[in-house]
Design a protein around this nucleic acid. Structure first.
Lengths: 204, 204
DNA sequence: TATCAAATCTAACAAATGTTAGGTTTATAA
DNA sequence: TTATAAACCTAACATTTGTTAGATTTGATA
């Protein structure tokens, strides 16, 4: 490895990238989220990590493989975070809140670039790569469906659980367009509002 | 005008385009919705309307102006449809249902291409053009906010109306990814489910 | 028919961009 | 020190794509 050490201390934030491949993924996530996948060319990405465009192809087969790597991480990070927090939650309502908070955090938290790219650039992926990601996502979605089904049985939610899940997924994907952390409502209050919208307070 | 008459009968569906400009907007909406703005080049668009790429620039200053025209129409159609249906609605809950149905129809109905492009390709627009569209949209949004505020006062919804609006906007933008008209739930049932999720049945 | 403007075509430019092949540097190990 | 492979660079290719200028056609009008 050449100048990875010194370069990574330049460009990477916390959780510094060990390898160049790692650094490329992190930086690509940031650039793709900021300027879009199409409007981010290999030369920009290369410069941002401190190397030349051609060198990227030593680490990735092509541009799309980088996009895939970013999205892959988005999904695995999300699943990991949920699985960690959902265990101590005992009631369906508590588990629902964990899911809501975690997915919102994916789009608004520290690592929001990954979630942002996953949503925004979905159509920039080839169909078969989309399929690969969807099967990775299946386990995560089953957590949602199970939890919402429980909530429905308990009368906590009234509408069809599967439809609610879809609607929420869209609602959360959208928050990046309007939610400002310095606005009238902080993150935890946002979670409260979502629960307030969803849940019948006189049940469960 | 050259071959507009015969060509429009080839490519346009109902509500056939009178002028070439009109035909270009319709076709662009369809192609942009289908394949994305970036992946639709002027040559494809030209061929789809039966002319050559260069000729498009007689009708539009550039590609972005076509995108803007599509989005402009999406917004004005939406506002028109809402204003037409919201008048006979008497209660806040009925007005809310009109808003829900109309916005859902924008993404799932006959003219869904326009709504689809408006959502998907938002970031493909220059910032100042985005601003222009947002001020056009303001009137429509005020209808939402007024209605949701009424619903909140009546206790029909519990959560913050402005937040609910934002969440719904995202949820509806997302339906195109999952809703199938031939699935388990038809359009009107979908509207019902949304209302069921939102509204406290024991109030208003 | 002659005229004129609207509408379209032809042909090419110019910039951006993903990608590649081959050379060069750097670190590691014998 | 030398051999080797990983990591990176240089330089260019090939394609795509928005755009444009000028020629050409079409349709209506006088």
């Amino acid at each position: 490895m050449a100048k990875t050490a010194e370069k990574s201390s330049d460009t990477s934030k916390a959780k510094g990238a060990q390898s160049s491949r790692e650094l490329l993924i992190e930086t690509a996530a940031r650039l793709f989220a900021q300027n879009g996948y199409n409007k981010t060319n290999m030369r920009e990405l290369a410069e941002a990590v401190g190397m030349k465009a051609g060198s990227i192809f030593y680490h990735f087969k092509g541009k799309e493989e980088i996009l895939f790597a970013v999205m892959e991480r988005a999904i695995s990070d999300l699943l990991e975070a949920v699985q960690k927090d959902i265990v101590p939650a005992e009631t369906p309502r508590q588990r629902l809140r964990v899911l809501v908070r975690t997915e919102l955090d994916m789009f608004l938290g520290d690592q929001s670039s990954y979630g942002l790219v996953l949503i925004h650039e979905w159509r920039s992926l080839t169909a078969d790569l989309q399929q690969d990601l969807m099967s990775m996502r299946a386990e995560y979605e089953s957590l949602w469906n199970a939890t919402l089904a429980d909530c429905h049985l308990d009368g906590i939610i009234k509408a069809n659980p599967k439809i609610v899940r879809r609607l929420l997924n869209g609602a959360f994907s959208w928050v990046i367009y309007w939610y400002k952390a310095d606005g009238e409502c902080n993150f935890e209050q946002l979670v409260d509002e979502v629960m307030l919208m969803l849940v019948n307070p006189s049940a469960g």
